[in-house]
């Protein structure tokens, strides 16, 4: 096809038209058009795309010739996903390249006998590139989500050393099985590192305790015991105590306390420690 050769000659026109289109789209969407960075990519993309397209590979997106283009596209869509661009904007980005090419070539195409097959194969090629763009865009979004999930699970399970040999772990939010595993892993690791012998699980921040959550708590207590430490559950609110009894959950095997303070007192007793008031006229009843 000679048209491919024509396309190569018109590279600069394609580039200019594509840039215009994007500036136009960006203005329509009310976004400031970050010329510097986008222009770089646009230029590179047109360059590599037009350079790699040949008669022999135009119908084969899997050809190694397009690896560089795909690499660039992935880079730009991944970046856009992380910068919070909408899927629509990302889509327009690649679609308008197709438009630009076809517009630039329109006069030549009118004269050419190969016009229809060329348009079909080019469209197919460009659609494959669009698919890559979307795939990467979604990967980019998922990447953001994954990072946030990791962050949440990290910040939501702090293990606090409240005394030599006593660890406290305030649990906030729902306790499902994967969360329990993360919490437990952190707690047990910390028990090993600090050589603690008492762990207090405070569930004040857990909205509801159903039989599944209770099971997770029981598992936590058993696992702590296997490490050679004792586990106290604190922060049991009256309504939670009610639910536990109504559901027929047996927590009699574990030590439960209503507040973190009373759990701490219990822990002191286990470690044979006493808290003393220095003002000798008063005595604190433990």
């Amino acid at each position: 096809m000679e048209i491919v050769q024509v396309l190569k000659k018109r590279k600069q026109n394609v580039l200019k038209l594509w840039l215009d289109k994007q500036a136009h789209d960006a203005a329509l969407n009310g976004n400031p058009f970050d010329e510097g960075e986008i222009n770089d990519y646009v230029e590179k993309l047109v360059d590599t795309f037009v350079d790699s397209i040949e008669n022999s590979n135009i119908d084969d997106i899997k050809s190694a010739d397009f690896d560089a283009v795909i690499e660039l596209l992935r880079e730009v869509s991944f970046k856009r996903a992380r910068q919070g661009f909408s899927p629509r904007e990302t889509g327009l980005f690649i679609f308008s390249l197709k438009e630009s090419i076809l517009e630039v070539l329109s006069d030549d195409l009118k004269k050419s006998k190969e016009a229809i097959p060329f348009i079909i194969t080019l469209s197919r090629l460009m659609d494959s590139l669009a698919t890559v763009t979307f795939e990467t865009f979604i990967e980019g979004r998922e990447d953001v989500i994954n990072r946030q999930t990791d962050e949440i699970s990290e910040i939501s399970t702090p293990v606090i050393k409240v005394w030599d040999g006593i660890l406290a772990l305030p649990i906030i939010g729902t306790l499902d099985s994967s969360r329990t595993q993360t919490v437990l892993e952190n707690l047990l690791q910390e028990i090993v590192e600090t050589g603690s012998s008492v762990a207090i699980l405070d569930i004040s921040g857990v909205p509801t305790v159903d039989s599944l959550v209770a099971q997770h708590l029981l598992k936590a207590v058993s696992a702590t015991r296997l490490m050679g430490a004792e586990c106290i559950i604190s922060g049991i609110r009256p309504e939670i105590a009610q639910t536990i009894v109504y559901l027929g959950i047996d927590l009699s095997q574990i030590v439960t306390k209503s507040t973190l303070a009373s759990a701490l007192q219990h822990a002191f007793r286990i470690l044979n420690l006493a808290v003393r008031n220095n003002d000798t006229t008063k005595t604190i009843k433990k």
């Binding site: 058993s222 702590t224 296997l226 490490m227």
Partner: peptide, 12 residues
């Protein structure tokens, strides 16, 4: 003695 955390969780 010395049960590893991952082993403890798995046993439970």
């Amino acid at each position: 003695v010395g049960i590893q955390p991952a082993v403890a969780i798995t046993l439970v």
